[in-house]
């Protein structure tokens, strides 16, 4: 996908629009206890901007990010995604469409890396780019470059990440998230277990993604890193007690 880089501070077209999003959990094993987490969430995300969710722990930041990826099932509202030239409501899409949106449009860096045990690191990182349509050699080269930038040395690329440290695995996860080149990127605590040097690399990667016109929404507890990349904060506030 070729898109001209945007000049700084200029916001591109809208890529994600959330209206009236609501999410609660019903715990059937705890006597049907219902826990409301999100209600009436409305937000818009444009190409070239980075929005960070803010609010105290437990307020539902991760729940919102997971709902936007279709990992959690939204119960109310719309999640409109600019996908393949049209607006698609992810909250109302069938599983195949959600998978297609994840291949082409929405990338996600989770807190944990979950992969088949034997697959080499380079493969894991190259996979999203291949699924999004890059040629295998091109995807592998991009994966290699990202891993090196994130200080994963070449000798580790052929190994599965099972034996890697927590920080290394998180960097593999980050490389995988950025390798896809998705127009929308969701970040769930991507710098949680990183040292300052690698944190700086992540900040650069986010800036570059913004420059190519990607829209980024995420959670980042490290205030300095967050301020370095966020164009604005989206505060989540406690739900009014419905009862």
């Amino acid at each position: 996908m070729s898109r001209a880089a945007l000049p700084p501070d200029e916001v591109g077209e809208m890529l994600l629009r959330v209206r009236g999003l609501g999410k609660s959990f019903t715990l059937h094993l705890q006597g049907g206890l219902r826990i409301p987490v999100l209600a009436g969430i409305a937000l818009a995300l444009h190409g070239g901007e980075c929005v960070m969710l803010s609010g105290p722990s437990g307020i539902g930041k991760s729940t919102l990010v997971r709902s936007l990826y279709g990992n959690y099932r939204a119960q109310a509202g719309e999640i409109l995604v600019r996908h393949a030239g049209a607006w698609v409501d992810l909250a109302a899409s069938d599983p195949r469409t959600v998978l297609e949106i994840r291949r082409q449009t929405i990338g996600y860096v989770s807190q944990f890396l979950r992969v088949v045990p034997r697959v080499p690191t380079l493969e894991i990182v190259a996979e999203p780019a291949r699924l999004a349509g890059s040629a295998p050699a091109e995807a592998a080269e991009r994966a290699r470059a990202l891993l090196l930038r994130l200080n994963i040395p070449e000798r580790l690329h052929v190994l599965p990440p099972a034996t890697f440290s927590g920080g290394e695995r998180q960097r593999v996860n980050l490389a995988r998230g950025f390798a896809g080149g998705h127009p929308i990127l969701l970040l769930d605590e991507p710098t949680a277990s990183l040292d300052a040097e690698n944190c700086a690399v992540v900040i650069d990667l986010v800036r570059e993604a913004k420059a190519r016109g990607a829209a980024i929404l995420g959670i980042m507890h490290d205030a300095a890193a967050r301020d370095a990349i966020a164009d604005r904060l989206f505060p989540l506030t406690p739900l009014q007690d419905a009862a």
């Binding site: 959990f25 019903t26 059937h28 094993l29 279709g70 990992n71 959690y72 099932r73 599983p95």
Partner: peptide, 14 residues
């Protein structure tokens, strides 16, 4: 029934 990660991470039925 649903997307694998959704059924496993956000199961709806008892």
């Amino acid at each position: 029934t649903g997307l694998t990660d959704q059924v496993l991470d956000d199961p709806q039925e008892p």
